Computed example of a mutant assay.
Amino acid sequence: MAQSGGKKRVQPHIIEEWTGKIYTSLCITFLIVTIFSMVYFVAAKGLSSFFVNGVSFKEIFGSTVWKPDGEPPLFGALPFIIGSFSTSILAALIAAPLGICAALFMVEIMPKYGKKYLQPVIELLAGIPSVVYGFVGLSVVVPFYRDLFPGQGLGIVAGATVLSIMILPTITSIATDALSALPSGLKEGSYALGATRWQTLYRTVIPTTMPALMTGVVLGMARAFGEALAVQMVIGNAPHIPTSLFESTSTLTSVITLSMGNTVMGSVQNNVLWTLAFILMAMTFIFVFTVRWLERRAKR
């Protein structure tokens, strides 16, 4: 009787365990199917411009002329690719030192005041909608550059400035976690050898956490590369390769958002826009693989 009672008490736990396993398996299956479906849909649409409409790889990746309504239509996407890389790389160069220094301040220099005042402000930046960043950039950043430098203020620098503020919380949060996870014995050993605080930071702490810090920078670049609305409002949206950082240009995301609603599904221009979206997705995968490589390097 005691054994049968024990089996009855164990039975609900077995049911709960199998219920959890089935629910988890269904969720994972749904995620996998969703991801592969999105990749297949975007790839099928994006590659149709090459295999159905006859647009050449050389024209999209090598030409600088974008005239989808011309006779014949021209689909040179090189200015948009260069514009996306220029703004995202410049934004990372601006935000990376600020984010890493903010993390050092919050973790190593003044953790009490940093976590009390600086960290809530940086976390607040992550919740602001991108349209607000774009409007602030159009109202403040663009006039500022217009008054200091020649041109209208619209261009790569204005877009990179807005993007750097947007990706600052991502870089700072990952850098803070990396610095907080650093063993305290490493810093104590540096102090025991006679190193000062600043020598310990730039000779021990930063080199040790560099892979994790670079992970935050790469993730910030990934977000900057895929941002559309904020960049669209301040970059000028000119379909050509700029000769100056203060000259208007365009990005992959901005040309997609501006042109997708004016095209017919299945047309050549619509398929070329899907090709640009496929390029964005491919770059996202590259950023993810880079982050994974940096994480494996950090564990060694």
Rank of each mutant, 00 (worst) to 15 (best):
Gly226Cys: 04
Tyr113Gly: 06
Gln199Arg: 06
Pro79Leu: 00
Cys101Trp: 09
Met210Cys: 08
Lys112His: 11
Ile165His: 02
Tyr202Cys: 05
Leu168Pro: 10
Ile256Pro: 07
Met281Gln: 09
Phe246Leu: 06
Gly194Tyr: 05
Ser84Glu: 03
Gly114Pro: 04
Asp69Ser: 13
Thr176Met: 13
Met281Asp: 08
Val218Lys: 04
Ser48Asp: 10
Lys112Gly: 12
Arg9Gly: 10
Thr64Pro: 08
Ile206Tyr: 07
Phe30Thr: 14
Thr24Leu: 14
Leu154Met: 11
Arg297Met: 11
Gly20Val: 03
Leu26Trp: 03
Met265Gly: 11
Tyr117Asp: 07
Phe287Trp: 05
Leu104Phe: 07
Leu138Thr: 08
Gly189Asp: 05
Gly5Arg: 11
Met1Gly: 15
Gly155Leu: 05
Phe289Ser: 09
Ile171Cys: 00
Ser56Arg: 10
Val255Asp: 03
Leu294Cys: 01
Ile94Asn: 05
Ser25His: 10
Leu186Val: 10
Pro79Gln: 00
Ile171Asn: 00
Thr19Glu: 05
Thr290Asn: 13
Glu59Met: 01
Ser180Tyr: 09
Phe85Cys: 12
Glu108Ile: 04
Ser63Tyr: 14
Phe85Met: 10
Gly5Ala: 15
Val205Ser: 09
Ala224Val: 01
Lys67Ser: 15
Ser86Leu: 08
Pro183His: 08
Phe51Glu: 10
Ser164Gly: 06
Tyr191Gln: 10
Lys7Pro: 01
Arg223Gln: 13
Ser86Ile: 02
Thr172Tyr: 07
Phe36Arg: 05
Ser254Gln: 01
Met214Ala: 13
Pro68Tyr: 00
Ser190Leu: 09
Ala126Lys: 05
Ile109Ala: 05
Pro242Leu: 00
Ile206Gly: 01
Leu168Met: 10
Leu98Gly: 10
Thr200Gln: 07
Phe36Glu: 10
Gly266Asn: 02
Pro129His: 00
Ser63Glu: 12
Phe246Val: 02
Leu154Thr: 07
Thr284Phe: 15
Lys8Trp: 13
Thr161Asp: 07
Ala222Ile: 04
Leu273Met: 06
Gly189Leu: 14
Pro211Met: 12
Leu258Ile: 12
Gln119His: 12
